[in-house]
Design a protein around this nucleic acid. Sequence first.
DNA 1: ACTCCCGGGACTGCCCGTTCAT
DNA 2: ATGAACGGGCAGTCCCGGGAGT
Lengths: 215, 215, 215, 215
Amino acid sequence: LARQVRAEETKAAIIRGAAEAFDRLGYGATSLTDVIKLAGVTKGALYFHFSSKQDVAQAVIERQHERSIGPARQRVEAGVPALESVIELSFGLATQLVEDPVVRAGIRLTLETGTFDAGTATPYRDWIEAVEILLHRAVETGDLRRSVRPETVARFVVGAFTGVHLLSQVLTGRADVHERVREMWELLLPSLVPEGKLADFKDVIARSESRQRAR
Amino acid sequence: LARQVRAEETKAAIIRGAAEAFDRLGYGATSLTDVIKLAGVTKGALYFHFSSKQDVAQAVIERQHERSIGPARQRVEAGVPALESVIELSFGLATQLVEDPVVRAGIRLTLETGTFDAGTATPYRDWIEAVEILLHRAVETGDLRRSVRPETVARFVVGAFTGVHLLSQVLTGRADVHERVREMWELLLPSLVPEGKLADFKDVIARSESRQRAR
Amino acid sequence: LARQVRAEETKAAIIRGAAEAFDRLGYGATSLTDVIKLAGVTKGALYFHFSSKQDVAQAVIERQHERSIGPARQRVEAGVPALESVIELSFGLATQLVEDPVVRAGIRLTLETGTFDAGTATPYRDWIEAVEILLHRAVETGDLRRSVRPETVARFVVGAFTGVHLLSQVLTGRADVHERVREMWELLLPSLVPEGKLADFKDVIARSESRQRAR
Amino acid sequence: LARQVRAEETKAAIIRGAAEAFDRLGYGATSLTDVIKLAGVTKGALYFHFSSKQDVAQAVIERQHERSIGPARQRVEAGVPALESVIELSFGLATQLVEDPVVRAGIRLTLETGTFDAGTATPYRDWIEAVEILLHRAVETGDLRRSVRPETVARFVVGAFTGVHLLSQVLTGRADVHERVREMWELLLPSLVPEGKLADFKDVIARSESRQRAR
DNA sequence: ACTCCCGGGACTGCCCGTTCAT
DNA sequence: ATGAACGGGCAGTCCCGGGAGT
C-alpha cells in the first residue's frame, strides 16, 4: 500500500541519481557511492532494489528507451501523416536529450559497447523498425519517393541523428542540437520527398524546430 | 641510437596494446594491467613513457588522429578533385575503422566525453575544417551546388559518418560499414551535386567502395 | 545495539594493530597491509572506519593523548599536592611508554609528523599547560621556589622528559626509562624546591619510581 | 683527477639534496625522485655513488655526525675549560640545527628508529662519551660538584638537549631554540656547579647564547 | 671512470562492488 | 532497508639494475 508507493519512489530516485552520474561520468567512472549520494539513499537500499551496478544501468537504459520510443509507438499506431511524424520525432528526441538526464544517460550507456555484453543493439533496432513502418506508410501517401527504399532511409536517419547529436554534444554541449537536426533534414529531404512537396516539408521542419525549442 | 630505437618500439607497443584494450573495453573498464599484458611490457616501461592512464589514452587518440586525418591533409594540399576526395576519404576512414585497432580505439575514446576534460573536440573540428576547405574548392569547380553552404555540409557529413559507423558497429560489428557509407552518399548526393553530374558521382561512389572493400 | 558494540570492537582492534605497527616501523614504513594483518581485520573493515592511513594515525594519536593526559587532567581538577603530582605523572607516563603500544605509537607519530603537519603541536601544548597549572599551585603551597617561573619550568620539563625517554628508547629499548626519569628529577629538584623541602621530595621520587616499576 | 673532483661534487650534491628532502619529509616519505630532483642529478648518478636509499641516508647521518661532533672532539683534545665547553657546544649545535640542513636531516634520521636496523645509537653514545670526558675534567678543575656523577649528568644533558630542541621545532619551528637551551642551563647549573661559581657560569651562558645568535 | 637511458616488478594506499545479519 | 564488513583489484610509483655512451 503506502509501502509499495514508497518503494517505487526510492527506486525512481535511484534511477534518477544513477542517470545523472552515468551521464556525466560514463559507466566505468561512476561509482555506486556517486549514485547513492545523488539519489539520497543508502547502499542497502540500492541493493534491495537492484542486484548489481549493471542492473542499475540496464534499468536506466530501459527507462530511457520507453520514454524516448513511446511517442514513436503512438505515431505508429495513430493514423497521422508519417514522414511528418518522423521529423517531429527527431526534434522531440533532441529536446529529451537536452532536458532529460535519464535520456542522456540511456543513450550514452547504449553506446558504451563492450561494457555490456548484450542488449545494446535492441534500442537501435526498435528505432529503425518504427521509422521504417512510418516510412512505408509515407510511400503510400506519396510523401516518400518510390526511388528510395524505406529501410535504407530508416537506418540512415537513425544513424545520422545519432552522429549529429553526438557531435553537437562534443562541440557545443548540445546547445545547437535542434539547429543541426534541422540542417540534417534540409539536406536529406530533396532526396526523400517528391519535388512538388518539398516546400510543404520545409514548413514542417521549421514548425517542428520552433515548437521544440520553445519548450 | 640503438637505445632510442628500442625505446620507440616499446612506446609503440604500448600504444598498440592500449588501443586494443580501449577498443574492446572502453576507457573506464580497461586496466593498465590489461594494457601491459597486451603490449608485452612491464609497468615500469609504461610508467617511463607515460605519466598516467589518461596520458596513454591521449597518445592513442593523437596517433589515430594523425593516421586518419593525414590523407585528408594531403588531399587538401594537392589539387585533386575536391568532392570526389571527400567521398574517397570517407571510405578510406571506414577501412581504417575495420582494420586498424588504433583508429578504432581513438574514435571510441574521442567519443567518451566527460572522462577526458578537454581536447576531445579538436579532432572533430579538424575534420570539419578539412572537409570544409575541400567543399569550398568543389564549389569553384562546379561540383557542389551553390544552394548549399559548404560549412553546413561539412559538419553534417562528419556527424552523419560518425553515427553511421557507430550504428554499423553496434548492429553488425562493422561488417557492413562500407555499404552503409555508400547509402549515405546516395541519399546525400542529390542535394549536393548539380543534376547533370549526379551519374558521374554515382560512379565515384561505386569505385571508391569497391576499391576499399578489396583491401 | 550489538552491532554498535561489534563495530567499536573492530575499530579498537584496528587502532591497536596500527599502534603496534607504527611503533615498530614508523609511519612511512608501515603499510596498511601490516595494520590489517596485526589487527586481524580486512581492508574493507579498515576502510569503513577510517578514510585514509593518515586518519588511522590521527586516531592512534588521539587515543594515546586521551589516555596519557587523562591522569594529568584529574590531578589538575583535584586538590592534590601539585609538584608531587607532576613527578608522579612523569613516572606514570614512563610506565605507559613501556607497557602500552598505543601510547608508544602515539608519541612516535606525534614526533614524526612534527615538521610539516599542523596540529601536531597540540598534545605538547596541552601537556605544558597542565604542568604549568600544577606548578602555579605549587608556588602557592610553597613547594616551588619563587625564583623560577612556572611556565619556563613546565616547558623544560616536558621537553626534557621527551628527550630522556627517546634516548632511553634508542639506547636500551626503554629498559631504563624509570631510572633516567629519576635522575632527571634528582638533577632538577635543587633548582625547583626550597632547600628545606629537598629531602621530602627525594622521598617522593623514590616512592613514585618504585611504585611504577612494581607494576 | 678532474674526474675525481667532479665525482666528489656530484656525491656532495646528492647528500645535500637528500638532506633537504629527509629533513622535510622524513625517511619513509622521501622518494629517490625527490632526492635527485633537489640534487640536480640523475638516478644513474645516484646509484653509482650509493648502493641504496639506506646508504644515502647513512651517508647523511655520517656527514652530520662528523660536522656536529667535530667541535666536541677538538674541545676534548684541547685543554680548554671543560664545563664551559659543554655549554658552548650545546649552543653551537643549536645553531647548526637552525642553519644546516644536513645536521637537521641527520638528527631526524637518527631518531627514526626501526627504519634503520642499526647504528642509530652510535651518535648518541659518542656524544655522551665526549660530554662525560669533559665533565670528568670539570670535576678536577672544581667546576662540577662532587655530589653529581659525570656520567649521569652527561646522559641527562644529551637527552634533555634532544628533547628541548625537538619541542622547539614542533612548537616554533626552531625559532626559540637558543632561548630554550639557555633556560635549560639556568635550571641545571644550580645542581651542577659549586655555589660560589654560579654567577660566573651565568655569564658563560649569556655570552654563549648571544655569540651564537649573532651568527 | 663516470653518467644516463630505459626498463623491471613488487607493492602501496585507496576504494570499489557486493553480501549478510539484523 | 541498514550498518558493518569483505576481498579483490585499481592506478600509481617506488627502489632498483644493467647496458650504452662519453
